[in-house]
Amino acid sequence: MGGMSEVPKPDAATPDPSTVARFRTVMLPHLDAVYGFARWLTRDPVAAQDLAQEAMLRALRYFHAFRGGEARPWLLRIVRNVWHDQRTRNGATDQPLDEIESRAADGPDPEQSAVASDRRRHVAAGLAALPVEMREILVLREIEDLSYKHIATVLDLPIGTVMSRLARAREKLAADLRGRLGRRGHGLPDL
């Protein structure tokens, strides 16, 4: 896809200070998005930090191949590639889900409404429990607010596949949430 196909070999030269300075201006503002995406991929805040850091450093090495345009999809694609590499390296061991679900129940919730925070916990747990192909596409669309074109870039898929996968992911999550959330008491219209 466009600029992304120009990713050079990993042995790119050490970037000079002016490249680092430009990288700081263009890419660093997207660190929250990088970390957020890494969190949903890894489902673990600590692994997410390592992933985000490795991705940012790889992005810096490849930065000379960035031809302008949208920085966020470009970065998120690198996050995903690094994650795949890490999984290959570590034998793809995902966190057991019960641990994730119990953690989703921890932590203060900014909103006082118990109903709303209960609902958010269920939604977060439902999203975390989805298979990764569904999880990542929903995060990119609904949380990162990327267009189909950008999602296609990040996931390296044709737009048609983005659309069908997104529809399937929404259906699956809706079905899961119907199971998790009783309809009453959550102020939800039908899912």
Partner: peptide, 18 residues
Amino acid sequence: AARTMGGLLRELPADPAP
């Protein structure tokens, strides 16, 4: 339903980079 789903996912608390 699709709109509701979007709303639910968007109201998840943001998790900024530590």
